[in-house]
Simulated assay, not measured.
Amino acid sequence: MIDMINTYDHEDAELLVPAAERAVPVLAELIGRARSSDVPVIYANDNFGLWRSHHGELVDTALSRPRAGLVEPICPADDSLFVVKTRHSNFYDTPMAYLLWQLGAGTVVLTGQVTEQCVLYSALDAHIRHLHVTVPRDAVASIHPHLEAAALEMMERNMDARIVQAEEVDFRGTRWPVSEGTPHEPGGRS
């Protein structure tokens, strides 16, 4: 889940909030299904420029702001995995690739905000690491709907991403393994 631990006190927040309000109930349901199927839920979140911050502080800060209702239903559980990021992609200067390799992940389901920015760039970085990408269109939020449509089309056409409704994501009985012979070990073969 990308950048959903958010204070919503940034530029363009008022344009983002309506899309986030639509996505949060879908995300809460999707997270619940993933957890009940023992599929790891990884939160990847901006650090809001707070370079000494950690995930607990980010969550506490978001929960103390007026838009806490957009964070409460999707808060990380105590055993949730959390990667603090500083730029648009979940992979840029983070341990995300190594974490996914350790988990044996071959597929990622990208959710969160902003579709036309962080979700798009994370999808590209996942694709070039030979990961299969699924994006539930109702579990992402955008600032500009026309750019979201273009981003989803780009992910589908250029990155072979599966663009689906959240209800189509089936976690049951799936280990989400790496495909046989897929070389995406961090720092290794590609």
Rank of each mutant, 00 (worst) to 15 (best):
A126V: 07
V71M: 06
T174E: 14
S142H: 12
Q113R: 11
R137S: 11
A77E: 03
T61H: 05
A139C: 10
A151S: 14
L63S: 06
A28R: 09
Y8A: 08
E72D: 05
E167C: 00
V108P: 10
L27K: 06
R52L: 14
Y8W: 07
E153N: 01
D93S: 14
F48Q: 12
L147A: 13
P66N: 08
A19K: 11
V84N: 10
I74Y: 13
C118T: 03
V17A: 09
E180G: 05
E116R: 12
A34H: 08
N47T: 08
R67L: 06
P40N: 13
A166C: 08
A13H: 02
G69Q: 04
E29T: 09
W176S: 08
V17N: 00
M4G: 00
A161M: 05
G56V: 00
E72T: 14
I163N: 04
T107S: 06
L27I: 10
Y98C: 03
M154R: 12
G69V: 04
R87S: 10
V108T: 07
A161H: 06
I2Q: 15
R67C: 00
V26Q: 03
L100T: 01
C118M: 07
R22S: 07
I2K: 04
D138G: 09
Y8F: 15
A68L: 05
L110N: 02
F91H: 11
V26H: 01
A19P: 01
L16R: 07
E29P: 02
P76H: 12
L16Q: 09
V83S: 12
F48T: 04
V178S: 01
G173C: 10
A20L: 03
D3G: 09
L103I: 03
V133P: 02
L63W: 06
V133I: 11
P183S: 13
L70T: 01
W176D: 01
G181R: 15
T7E: 13
E168R: 15
D46F: 09
D125N: 14
G104F: 03
P66M: 00
R157G: 00
D60Y: 09
I31S: 02
M4F: 08
A62D: 00
M96G: 02
P186E: 05
L100C: 03
G112L: 08
L152R: 02
W101A: 12
W101Y: 12
E148C: 12
R137E: 01
I42C: 07
G56Y: 08
I74D: 01
M96E: 10
R52Q: 14
V39D: 05
L131Q: 13
R35Q: 06
S89I: 04
E21T: 04
V24Y: 04
T115E: 01
T134L: 11
I163P: 10
L63R: 11
G173E: 03
V41Y: 04
V119K: 06
L131T: 07
R52C: 07
G49S: 09
H10K: 13
D93I: 02
A20P: 01
S89L: 12
H54D: 14
A123R: 05
P177I: 05
T94S: 12
P76K: 11
N90P: 04
C75G: 09
V108I: 10
T86H: 15
H184D: 02
T7H: 08
H130F: 07
L120G: 01
V133C: 02
